[in-house]
Lab assay of single mutants.
Amino acid sequence: QWKVGDKCSAIWSEDGCIYPATIASIDFKRETCVVVYTGYGNREEQNLSDLLSPICE
Rank of each mutant, 00 (worst) to 15 (best):
L51C: 06
C56D: 15
S9A: 13
Q1C: 15
T32A: 01
W12K: 03
C17Y: 09
D15Q: 08
E31P: 00
R43M: 14
I23M: 02
D15A: 02
E14R: 15
E44R: 05
R43T: 12
F28P: 12
K7R: 12
T22D: 04
C17F: 12
T38Y: 10
S53A: 14
G5M: 01
Y37L: 04
I26Y: 00
E14C: 10
R30D: 09
Q1H: 12
L48N: 05
P54W: 08
D50I: 09
G41C: 07
E57K: 02
C33Y: 09
W2I: 13
G41F: 03
K7Q: 12
E31T: 02
W2K: 09
V35L: 04
P20E: 13
P20G: 08
C33H: 00
A24E: 15
I18H: 02
V4L: 00
S49E: 10
C17T: 05
V4P: 15
E31I: 04
C56L: 15
R43G: 05
D50Q: 02
R30T: 12
R43D: 07
G41N: 10
F28H: 14
L48M: 05
K7V: 11
W12D: 03
E57C: 13
L51P: 03
P20Q: 11
K7P: 09
N42Q: 11
V35G: 01
I11L: 07
S49N: 08
N42E: 08
I55R: 09
C33A: 15
D27L: 05
D15W: 08
Y40N: 15
L51Q: 02
R43E: 11
S53P: 15
C8Q: 00
L52S: 02
Y19E: 04
Q46A: 04
D27P: 00
G16R: 01
I11N: 00
A21I: 12
W2Q: 11
G41S: 06
C8F: 00
V35F: 02
L48Q: 02
A21F: 06
T38D: 15
G39T: 09
E57W: 13
I26A: 03
K7D: 11
V4N: 07
I26V: 01
N47K: 14
E44P: 02
K3C: 11
V35E: 01
E14T: 09
Y19Q: 03
W12A: 04
S53K: 12
A10C: 07
D50K: 01
E14D: 05
I11P: 02
G41M: 09
A24Q: 11
I23S: 04
I55G: 12
I18Y: 14
S49A: 13
G16A: 05
K7W: 10
S49D: 08
G39I: 11
C56E: 15
P54F: 07
R43I: 09
D27C: 08
K29A: 13
E44G: 02
S25I: 10
S13Q: 06
E44L: 03
D6S: 00
P54I: 08
S9L: 15
D15F: 08
V35N: 02
D15L: 06
E45G: 02
